[in-house]
Design a protein around this nucleic acid. Structure first.
Lengths: 150, 150
DNA sequence: GTACTTTCTCAAGTGCGCTTTAGGTCAAGC
DNA sequence: GCTTGACCTAAAGCGCACTTGAGAAAGTAC
């Protein structure tokens, strides 16, 4: 009746059913239940899950994503302005990552050109680039701040 | 005497001693041993480790990195041309990632502008972008090919 | 030569993000 | 009504990338 079953959500988002339940354990979605105890999702949930997928692609740890979604007013009363705010923050993140990659590329170009064979000094041993991390190593996420400004 | 101790390498690269040993188990470096059985590293090893750090930042799984390094001729006789080839391949990877991020950004701009509240359809439910993944989720690495062309 | 630090090996543990398994219950089609 | 498939919970397992711990040997500083 009202709401999608978990299997439908899985199909629409491309996530595994188990992953969706896992996200619920982490407070990312809070579906209603029908009389039989089955989860029922609405479009807001799908939106949240999609947001998770994008954020993960950008290397955000789940805990951080959960925290961000927590800031949205009420689970089922999110306005256009709320999503716009979130999206705009993400835009900033994406821009930052693009800039970091461009710096790395330029640095690497230098290495290729000069043949110095010293990646460690020209591309890596450069403190301000150490913050411009990309993909998250498991442990890297902890002591680092690939965070959204908000 | 000849070669650096593991602690020195740790200090120079910023890696933990345990991580360096871990990489050795995975064939990424093969340091010599002194009379007492202690590892001795040279500059080539540091270069390899630096390469690992950069590649990881780009989201490459260790196994893939190890395979790439495996292709380098002899552990201690790597030429400028070898490194240049590797670096050039990486440049391609970086360019691809920048392009993917730019596509995502443009897509997101559309969402912000139109206020459609449908991230799932405009930013995500788009097959050709599903391949343009960024950071590697644990499982994502398996069925995916954020690979170097070489 | 004694004290202290570093390194050694090997095994077990950790954190994240899920998946799998086991043993059931619920819902939909015939 | 009955069967078949989707769903339920709880607990355990997995893959990656490391870290930690224990006990011993090697190196270094005085």
């Amino acid at each position: 009746m009202s709401g999608l079953a978990i299997g439908d959500v899985a199909e629409r988002t491309g996530l595994a059913v188990s992953a969706i339940r896992f996200y619920e354990e982490h407070g990312i979605v809070r579906p209603l239940r029908n009389a039989g105890g089955h989860r029922r999702y609405d479009r807001a949930d799908i939106r949240r899950l999609s947001f998770v997928m994008i954020a993960q692609r950008l290397g955000f740890p789940l805990a951080r994503i959960a925290a961000l979604l927590e800031e949205l007013p009420d689970e089922r009363r999110v306005t256009k302005a709320d999503w716009t705010r979130l999206s705009t923050q993400f835009r900033g993140e994406i821009d930052a990552r693009i800039a970091a990659l461009e710096r790395l590329r330029d640095r690497l170009d230098g290495c290729i050109g000069c043949g110095c064979l010293s990646l460690e000094s020209c591309a890596l041993h450069n403190p301000d680039d150490a913050q411009a991390k990309e993909g998250p190593g498991p442990r890297k996420l902890l002591d680092e701040d690939g965070q959204l400004p908000g």
